[in-house]
Structures are given as C-alpha cells and as structure tokens.
Deep mutational scan, measured.
Amino acid sequence: MDSLVVLVLCLSCLLLLSLWRQSSGRGKLPPGPTPLPVIGNILQIGIKDISKSLTNLSKVYGPVFTLYFGLKPIVVLHGYEAVKEALIDLGEEFSGRGIFPLAERANRGFGIVFSNGKKWKEIRRFSLMTLRNFGMGKRSIEDRVQEEARCLVEELRKTKASPCDPTFILGCAPCNVICSIIFHKRFDYKDQQFLNLMEKLNENIKILSSPWIQICNNFSPIIDYFPGTHNKLLKNVAFMKSYILEKVKEHQESMDMNNPQDFIDCFLMKMEKEKHNQPSEFTIESLENTAVDLFGAGTETTSTTLRYALLLLLKHPEVTAKVQEEIERVIGRNRSPCMQDRSHMPYTDAVVHEVQRYIDLLPTSLPHAVTCDIKFRNYLIPKGTTILISLTSVLHDNKEFPNPEMFDPHHFLDEGGNFKKSKYFMPFSAGKRICVGEALAGMELFLFLTSILQNFNLKSLVDPKNLDTTPVVNGFASVPPFYQLCFIPV
C-alpha cells in the first residue's frame, strides 16, 4: 500500500510540474494548442506526416506557434517570411542545433551535424575549407563525379535492359564520391566492405524516417530501456565508426604531411598542428563522427533524390523527352556531361530543381535551437528552445509555385524558357546551418541524371499514369515507394 501511495504522489508531482512548466512558459512563447500533461501535443500531431499537421496548425495559430513534445516546448516556423527572418536575418541567433537524443547517444555531441557552439563552428569551418581545397564546386571533385558517372552508366548497362530496382546502384554512385573525398578511394560496386557500408546507410535513412524515431526523440528514456529499431540505428553508426577508425589508422601509418590526399589526411594534419593548443576540438573521436556525418549527409540524401527523380521522369515521359532533346543538342553522344553545360541547359536545370522542390526530401529539416534569449515577432523565446522549420511550407508555397503539388519544371523557367532562380528554393535548409555539401549534391544530381539520360531511355513496367509517387515514409525524410524500371541503351 505504501508503495502505491508513493507512486501516486510521484505521478501527481510530475503532472503538477508539467502543468507549471507549460503555464509559466506560455506567456512568453508564441500561441499554440493546449498541451496535455506529460505528453504535450503529441496526440494532435500525425507522426506519419508531421508536415501536414504543421500546415493545419498554422492555419489556426499563424506562421509562428508553439507545440509541446512531452514536456519540451518547440517553436514552429511556417512559411517563407518566418523562416527567412529566423535563419537568414537572425542567422546567428537561430544557428543552434536542437535536442536530438538519439544523435546524442550516437555521437556524444561530436561531428558537424549535431554539434553546437565553438566545437560546431570550428569543425564546420575546417570541413568547408577542406572540401573547397579539394575542389568542391571546382574541377578536381567534378572529375571524381564524372568518373563515377561513367562507372554508374557501365553498371546500368550490365542490367541488359531487364527490369531492376535502382535503389542499390543509385546509392553506390554518391557513396563512392564521398569515399573518394574521405578515403581517396572508390570501391567496386561488388566489394563486400562497400556493400556493408551501403547497407547500413540505407537502413539508417529508413529507420530515421519512421514514426518510432519521432517518439524516441521526444521521450528519450525509451532509447535506453525499450527495444526497437533505434538500437539497430545505433549499432549501424557504431559499425561505421569502427570502419572509419580502421581507415584512420591506415592513414596514420602512411600519411605524407607534405601531400595530403583526402579529408582524413587533412584532419590528422590539423590534429598535429593543434596538439599544443589544448583542449582542441580536433580529436580522433571528432574525426570519426565528422566522417560519419559526411557519409550520412552525402550519400543517402543524394541517392534518395536520384531514385525519386527517375520515378518522376517515368511518370512524366514528356519531361524526359525534353531533357534528352536538350542533352542531344548541347552535349551530344561523344563526350561526358560537365558542369559548364548546365548554363546552356535551362530546361534540365529546371527539372533538377523541380525534383528537389517537389519531393521535399527533408520536410522539417533537422531541429534548430536559439543560442540566446531572443525577441522574435513580439515573442520571447528562451535560450536553448528547439525550433522546428517547415521546409515544406517554403518549397510548396502556392504563391511562389502555382499548383505546388504538381510536378512542373516551369516553376523554374521564365516566359522565355530561361532558368529562373527562386529564393524559396531551400531543399538544403538556409542560413548558417545550410548543408555543407550543397554544391557537391547539386553537381552530382546534374551529372548523374544527364549521364543516365544521355545513355538510356527509361521504360516503366506499368502505365506511367498508374505510377504512385507518394512517399512511403514522410517523417525525417521523404522516401519514394518501391518501383522497377528498364534502362534501355540509346
């Protein structure tokens, strides 16, 4: 009986604490739906499609509103004006990374994606500088992407125009580009180590996009005490870190300090320079996690976009025909596509942009946080508050993009057929937390897609009208449904 009384008292205290925290903070924060004790607004949000729920709530509470995930307040920004004001106009104040408990377990605050403060700034600055020195957006990395595009075309030829699921092959190409940047090595598509790495990356994007992960991140005790797919994700990350550590040891034994070959060499050189400046942010643990982040951000996002792009091109054969006509006119058949071609191919450029806009790969991006107490639109948001960005509300804005739910390359073309930029184009987020590999991803999408369409016609196994382009999961990332196609050599 005594234990029951204690339990009831504990629960009562928890409920009172929950109510007090919510009521004391709500006077400062933007308005929002009334949260339930302990669980907050979790029942009012469709976990399978958070973005749709945010759109519905914005119609009631406006472009800036507050939700509670458990006891934790989260300020939501919906629509271009609110997102721009926060991420661009007040970029420094909104540059923090929001709480992501599962990532905390995986990387302990290291790396480039989930770190904060001085650690994040130094690692991000170093990573950007190193990638630029190796030619991100310049010639040397373009050579690597072109080489991988040629290998991709050869792998597709091996399908002999038979029906195939493109998931694996389209994942190999961007993964190999990242391998060449980090390890100075590309792998054969049949290499077992490479296959294991690909498998872990593919599993992780599916797990991260599941409703279960949303629950884990908002009720963090689940991570330590409950079984579930989150444990598989943590094991996959541990596998990748151990693999990278092996490569780091190989580099330490063979590195030429006067001739760095890749990202690992550059990081080890930085560690050597910083060894007298303790404590340094440049450690082996930081290198492991930064490399894992580059793999995660640079492989599955690009391969998922490529997979979605081919599905949309199957669905819209008239678009595919126009792209192939432009390829034939500008590039021809006797040389590989290059980035200089893009400025002469406005329709193809528009298609690449429209694919990214339409699929809305990361509907709410990753959570941000404010780095200080900030007054925002007459609300006071306390330091450390998590900020949720609705990228969907920007990419699918119906004023900027008429009929935003329709796939239409003319969203990025003017009346004369010239490519038209849009400030609403934010597939990689915006501001200080914009994806480090934005330029690389854009290069890969253009070169891989043009190389495929230069060499193959795409054949659907069903009537294009019957192809479903609805994402199968739409949590962290929008993942396309399973499909097969035939690559018919031109």
Rank of each mutant, 00 (worst) to 15 (best):
D2C: 15
D2A: 11
D2S: 13
S3Y: 11
L4F: 15
V5W: 14
V6S: 14
L11C: 13
S12T: 06
C13V: 14
C13M: 11
L16Q: 01
L19K: 12
W20D: 00
R21C: 09
S23L: 08
G25S: 13
G27C: 11
G27N: 15
K28M: 15
L29H: 04
P33T: 01
P33M: 01
T34N: 15
I39N: 03
I45S: 05
D49I: 00
D49G: 11
D49V: 04
S51K: 11
K52Q: 11
K59M: 09
K59Y: 06
Y61T: 01
G62E: 00
P63L: 02
L67F: 10
F69R: 07
G70E: 01
L71T: 14
K72R: 11
V76S: 02
L87M: 09
I88M: 14
I88Q: 10
E93N: 14
G96A: 15
G98R: 08
P101K: 05
A103S: 12
E104Q: 10
E104D: 09
A106G: 11
R108P: 11
G111C: 04
I112R: 10
S115T: 10
N116L: 03
G117S: 09
K121A: 10
E122D: 14
R125N: 08
L131R: 03
N133M: 12
F134L: 15
R139P: 14
R144P: 03
Q146W: 04
E148Y: 00
R150S: 09
E155V: 07
R157V: 06
A161F: 05
C164A: 04
D165T: 05
T167V: 02
L170R: 00
L170Q: 00
V177H: 00
V177S: 01
I178V: 12
S180R: 05
I182L: 14
R186M: 02
F194P: 02
L195F: 06
N196Q: 14
M198T: 09
E199P: 02
E199G: 10
K200P: 02
E203Q: 14
E203L: 07
N204V: 10
N204H: 05
I205F: 14
K206L: 08
K206F: 08
K206C: 10
P211Q: 08
W212Q: 03
W212K: 07
W212V: 07
Q214E: 08
Q214Y: 13
I215E: 02
C216Q: 07
N217A: 14
N217P: 12
N218M: 13
S220C: 10
P221G: 08
I222A: 11
P227R: 05
G228H: 06
T229D: 11
H230M: 12
L234C: 12
V237T: 15
M240R: 01
K241R: 15
Y243K: 08
N259I: 05
P260N: 08
P260R: 10
P260W: 03
F263T: 04
I264E: 03
C266D: 07
C266P: 04
K270Q: 11
E272C: 13
Q278L: 07
E281V: 14
E281W: 07
E281A: 11
T283H: 14
T290M: 12
V292L: 15
V292C: 07
V292W: 12
T299P: 02
T302I: 15
S303V: 06
T304Y: 14
T305D: 04
T305V: 09
R307S: 05
Y308S: 05
A309Q: 01
L311G: 01
L314P: 01
L314G: 05
H316T: 03
P317D: 06
A321M: 13
A321H: 13
A321Y: 11
A321F: 09
E328K: 11
V330R: 08
V330W: 09
V330L: 04
R333A: 08
C338G: 11
M339L: 13
D341K: 02
S343I: 14
M345T: 02
Y347M: 03
V352L: 13
V355S: 03
Y358V: 07
Y358S: 04
P363C: 10
P363Q: 06
P367Y: 06
P367A: 06
H368F: 12
H368C: 08
A369G: 05
V370P: 05
F376S: 02
K383E: 07
L391V: 06
T392I: 02
V394Q: 10
V394G: 11
H396R: 14
N398Q: 15
N398D: 14
P404A: 06
M406I: 12
H410N: 12
F412V: 01
G416C: 15
K420E: 06
Y424R: 09
S429D: 05
C435G: 04
V436E: 03
A441D: 03
G442A: 07
L447K: 00
L449W: 00
L449Y: 02
T450W: 00
S451L: 03
K459Q: 12
K459M: 05
L461I: 15
N466M: 09
D468E: 08
T469V: 06
T469K: 01
T469S: 05
T469G: 05
T470R: 11
P471K: 10
V472S: 09
N474D: 05
V479S: 11
L485H: 00
L485T: 09
C486G: 03
V490A: 14
V490E: 09
